[in-house]
């Protein structure tokens, strides 16, 4: 009995965003990475194209992280103090598609590093690795607004992915990206309407920027509200495929950052024997979070533990296999 396969016919698709620039394109990257472009729900190759596989970025700080779990030291401890070496290790040893630099030291409550210091760090990382870079601020809007133009200028031509723009604070970063032709992360608080509104505001400042937006829906870790983001992402992606241009952007999530704040990732085996061994538990907490977001349509996964990243890379390999009927 021949089953009549049910294929959705979508009107539209997700836009593609190119990250990085090679020498010919005015940058110094060894290659570029294209994300987005899907014309089907995640990995349903039988009804549309998934032209670009989701990519994994490993996250580094511009300083020795004060609060990372000791179990990460055996992977990164030797390079914590040197962002360039750290980035290189992420790419060479742990196979990161991209590196995300978080300018943590710029936080006025941490080291209050100057925008020039931040730009110098980004330059060093650019010299150390050939992959495209994601750069995000310290999270304090006032300070970040001083950093964006300086970093954007220092990395002009590199086609960074720079973040993050928020509804209350998007102009400085959008201007910086416009002036030096970088891509932008638009972050909305688990809210599809704010997500659209922010994308519209950025597009109003510059129509060219509309094609350079990557959506950060604000993600939660497994067990801490992941299902809210999961459903918002599913709705956004369905909206994109049905023709809503202001949702038709690739999506990014800071998975490592969220997961490594949870009790389940950090509590030692001795303190919570009922939860099993800590490091493997943490790895799977991160990998399971990433697995779920892949199923909801995430295109760029920013991760932390190299083993979690390796598990997800394998999962993506498998999910990218054609499943046409």
């Amino acid at each position: 009995m021949a089953v009549e396969i049910l294929k959705e016919k979508y009107r539209s698709k997700v836009g593609e965003v190119v990250l990085g620039a090679t020498k010919e394109q005015g940058g110094t990257r060894s290659h570029t990475i294209t994300v987005g472009g899907e014309s089907a729900l995640p990995f349903l190759h039988f009804e549309g194209a998934i032209p670009n596989r989701p990519v994994i970025a490993l996250e580094i700080y511009d300083m020795v992280p004060e609060d990372w779990h000791p179990c990460l030291e055996k992977y990164y401890g030797d390079v914590y103090a040197d962002p360039a070496a750290w980035a290189k290790k992420c790419v060479d040893e742990y196979g990161a598609d991209l590196v995300q630099v978080r300018l943590r030291s710029a936080d006025p409550d941490v080291k209050d590093s100057s925008p020039e210091d931040c730009a110098a760090t980004v330059k060093k990382v650019l010299e150390a690795v050939g992959v495209p870079l994601i750069v995000i601020g310290c999270g304090k809007a006032e300070k970040d607004n001083l950093i964006y133009p300086v970093v954007a200028e220092a990395a002009a031509g590199e086609n960074l992915l720079l973040g993050v723009a928020e509804l209350e604070n998007y102009k400085a970063i959008t201007s910086a990206c416009m002036a030096h032709q970088h891509n932008i992360i638009a972050q909305s608080p688990i809210d599809i309407n704010i997500c659209k509104q922010l994308n519209i505001l950025i597009a109003e400042m510059s129509t060219a920027m509309a094609g350079r937006i990557v959506i950060d829906p604000t993600i939660a870790a497994l067990g801490y509200g992941i299902e809210y983001t999961y459903s918002i992402m599913e709705r956004a992606r369905i909206g994109a495929l049905q023709g809503d241009k202001m949702l038709a952007m690739p999506m990014i999530g800071n998975i490592g950052h969220e997961v490594w704040r949870t009790k389940e990732a950090n509590t030692s085996t001795e303190e919570a024997p009922g939860w099993g061994e800590q490091e493997e538990r943490a790895i799977l907490w991160e990998a399971t979070t990433a697995m779920a977001y892949l199923q909801a349509g995430m295109d760029i996964l920013v991760m932390r533990h190299p083993r979690a990243a390796a598990l997800i890379r394998k999962n993506i390999d498998e999910l990218m296999q054609d499943n046409s009927y």
Binding site: L222, I226, E264, G274, W275, G276, Q278, L284, T288
Partner: peptide, 20 residues
């Protein structure tokens, strides 16, 4: 079948099946 292996999976199940 280890605890650290099943806890993440069961947590995802709990999250996914909540009433939105």
């Amino acid at each position: 079948a280890k605890k650290e292996q099943l806890l993440p999976l069961l947590t995802w199940r709990q999250n996914l099946f909540t009433d939105p």
